[in-house]
Write a protein that binds this DNA or RNA. Structure first.
Length: 463
RNA sequence: UCCGGGGUAGCUCAAUUCGGCAGAGCAGCGGACUGUUAAUCCGUUUGUUGUGGGUUCAAGUCCCACCCCCGGAGCCA
């Protein structure tokens, strides 16, 4: 008999019909009336299905009474209306096949709640919990919504390389990729001889696909990347991972305003999508993780983002009647406490801050006419902080060249990037969005390590 | 990397200012009861107190070093 996913069983109106389901047992409750209840979950939905196992089936004593939390079973039976109060329908089992037991002496998950920190040590089993099942479904929905959003707008999904030779943004520690014997690499003089390495030169895991995305945007008009990126920073916060997924759209013939429009439309689309498609999971997060979650997602999906220039933001901050640890002054980057004040106190909504001082921003951002600022933007949201960083790119060859030199970067490495400005250059813009931070915000999970299946952080790559 | 807080039973935690026999709930196990649903009730097992050193008659507790975790900062997405 063909197996049905539990989510479909729960929606089914085929009362009296035969169904087959399979999954992992969440609880077994015995009745001395001579039968047992199993709650079975297969991850297809938040709710599991209740199985009523009559004592008459042949393996009841020998097997069913040994089924405990974590065991895997398949059940064939009749779908009936449930007389109990916790569910609309249930399955009266005619046959239960046990695929695998989970010895309760060793199985670490319990009916009772386990702390998130402990569950990180059980990353291979935590998807069997309510929270991480819900997280995985919401994360999946956000990924699907991402593709749908861009595909609906004629963006081309672009695969940029994971291994690169250059440090794309001139900032951030990178993981080196090598096939050399790290214990005894070949040497010329005192230096490692990278001409003998796999690529004949030092290579690294990418920190961004942006530069490559620009090349394709300047041929195919609008593209987006969606893939893993890597930062070897020794940063240990609840918002950072060493390996994280990023979405980077890049659009030709677009300026900073177009870019902000796109970022806002995308973020709002994501939240509206999960509100429409993940309501049960979100209600769970709203009840157990973050009680303001649904209201916040709803308000963000339905209201315009506030836009403000860096200069005006500094003005707001300098008038704030709050004692900041770091002084606010035009020319220095906004600190986390400043961003939090702006988005959580001053405006209480997502905020797009634009036109930052050029000295604190990357070389590829377009210089504004005032000579002091660049066409950069950050999208800030309450609770998580910066989720989007982007800019209009410098399309003028000479200005870009000067900027690379001024930042002390190796001009030769950027020959092909500069080439894009020599041949048919046009204004273009794009941004990067940290997918984990969106998942974090969308679920209310406090720590980004709990917003990705297998987090990679300093000292942690067990799974 | 810096600042702060932590590491005690399988899990969540306690152990009185000022060192003095290491405990409780949950889980597990045994039993009772029940169309149950975080089931309930009775009974019961469980310890290299993160690691290494030191002080002391005596250290979970005090001192030193190190490891790891969490929060904040920096870096950023």
């Amino acid at each position: 008999m063909k197996r049905t996913l539990i989510k479909h069983v729960l929606e089914s109106d085929q009362i009296g019909g035969r169904v087959k389901v399979a999954g992992w047992v969440r609880t077994r409750r015995d009745s001395k009336g001579g039968f047992s209840f199993l709650e079975l979950n297969d991850g297809s939905s938040f709710a599991g299905v209740q199985i009523v196992v009559p004592g008459e089936i042949e393996n009841y004593e020998s097997e069913i009474l040994n089924v405990t939390i974590g065991s895997a079973v398949a059940v064939t039976g009749e779908l009936v209306e449930s007389p109990g109060s916790g569910q609309r329908v249930e399955i009266h089992a005619g046959n239960v096949h046990v695929y695998g037991y989970a010895d309760p002496d060793d199985y670490p998950l319990q009916k009772k709640q386990i702390g998130f920190e402990r569950l990180r040590e059980l990353a291979h089993l935590r998807p069997r919990t309510n929270t991480f099942g819900a997280m995985a479904r919401v994360r999946n929905a956000l990924a699907y919504a991402t593709h749908r959003f861009y595909q609906e707008r004629d963006f081309l999904y672009l695969h940029t390389p994971m291994i690169t030779a250059s440090d794309a943004e001139g900032a951030g520690e990178m993981f080196q990729v090598t096939t050399l014997d790290v214990g005894a690499p070949p040497r010329v003089d005192d230096a490692v001889d990278y001409s003998q390495d796999f690529f004949g030169r030092p290579t690294f895991l990418t920190v961004s696909g942006q530069l490559e995305a620009e090349a394709y945007a300047l041929a195919l008009d609008r593209v987006y990347t969606f893939g893993p990126t890597f930062r070897a920073e020794n940063s240990n916060t609840r918002r950072h991972l060493a390996e994280f997924w990023m979405i980077e759209p890049e659009v030709a013939f677009a300026d900073l305003s177009d870019n902000a429009d796109l970022a806002e439309a995308y973020v709002r689309y994501l939240f509206q999508y999960i509100l429409d498609h993940c309501s049960t999971d979100l209600e769970f997060f709203n009840k157990w993780v973050d009680d303001g979650l649904l209201a916040r997602l709803d308000s963000i999906a339905s209201a315009d983002f506030r836009r403000i220039t860096y200069t005006d933001a500094v003005e707001v901050l300098s008038k704030a009647e709050v004692a900041f640890d770091y002084p606010v002054d035009w020319g220095v980057d906004l600190q986390s406490e400043h961003e939090r004040y702006l988005t959580e106190v001053a405006f209480e909504q997502p905020l797009i801050v634009t036109d930052y001082p050029s000295d604190i921003k990357a070389f590829y951002m377009r210089r504004n006419d005032d000579g002091k600022t660049v066409a950069a933007m950050d999208v800030l949201v309450p609770g998580v902080g910066e989720i989007v960083g982007g800019s209009q790119r410098e399309e003028r060859h000479d200005v870009l060249y000067e900027s690379i030199v001024a930042k002390g970067l190796p001009v030769d490495d950027y020959w092909w990037y500069l080439d894009l400005r020599r041949f048919g250059s046009v204004p273009h813009a794009g941004f990067g969005l940290g997918f984990g931070r969106i998942v974090q915000f969308a679920t209310g999970m406090q720590n980004i390590r709990d917003a990705i299946p297998f987090p990679r952080t300093p000292n942690s790559a067990e799974f």
